[in-house]
Design a protein around this nucleic acid. Structure first.
Lengths: 137, 137
DNA sequence: AATGGAAAGTTATGTAATAACATTATTGAA
DNA sequence: TTCAATAATGTTATTACATAACTTTCCATT
């Protein structure tokens, strides 16, 4: 990710703004198609319009993709222009659907250390834990 | 996962055996459809035949699903009847496609500790690191 | 042999993502 | 301002991934 791409004050285009708004107002991760459904009233008609917006929002660090769900969530640092930690992890509640994004120093250093010892060069990671959140069990 | 499902000496059905064989003979993870393609010569015709076999193999702990790739790999403990560690992680090479399954005590305890502190009850996890393996960089 | 449950077969459909190409907006330098 | 370059958008079609619903076959047990 480039510096420019990390800047959170980049102007969003119309579609990017629409998609981000939908994600921000959702309490759960949304699939691209369910985002599309919510935006048909705003003139969006095709999956690509959503996927292209998501691509830019991902590059800009404003949303995350949950690989194990084929779904997207806003990044908890999306506002504020914070520097985003390197390794992001998610706790995903199978009951209420809520997602807790977190950054754990120990998880990160353990993965980095393991990579170093096996000669692996990390470029991206997907760390997704499924289960029940505190409210649901 | 039940005890019975963990037993590795369970007899496999014809389709389960075919699917497992294909995965074992592949140096890379395979999608369900590419498994199907390789088994058309053996009479398989429909995706469901593969997905059903995969479902059983996953339950039995003989293969893993890579969520970030929509693909499947044999479990490195598939033979041997070993007890499978709780938390499994993968280093996936973006150049040669090879997957390194590993079980890291520090990663596991960090995730468990974080879950405990946030009141989250872990049921499953997907930990997939993408990058370049030692051979490729 | 009868039967009950698991596996397999088959067709259709649902969901996720991208290809290919045409058009419109924006930007930035001459 | 004008024009070229780049980015974004729109549109249609297609590919890839996964499951629903229902039928038939297989096989262990009575």
């Amino acid at each position: 990710m480039t510096q420019a791409a990390q800047a959170h004050d980049l102007k969003l285009t119309k579609n990017q703004h629409l998609v981000l708004s939908v994600l921000e107002s959702s309490r759960q991760p949304l699939s691209a198609y369910s985002i599309l459904d919510r935006l048909r009233g705003h003139g969006l008609k095709a999956p690509l319009q959503v996927y292209r917006a998501l691509e830019k929002l991902l590059e800009a660090g404003r949303v995350h993709r949950l690989e194990s769900m084929n779904a997207f969530v806003v990044c908890c640092h999306s506002r504020h222009g914070q520097i985003h930690p390197r390794i992001t992890a998610f706790e995903i509640c199978e009951s209420c659907g809520k997602v807790n994004e977190f950054h754990d120093e120990k998880v990160e250093s353990a993965l980095i250390q393991h990579a170093r010892s096996s000669g692996f060069k990390i470029r991206a990671s997907a760390i997704e834990v499924h289960g029940l959140c505190a409210d649901c069990h």
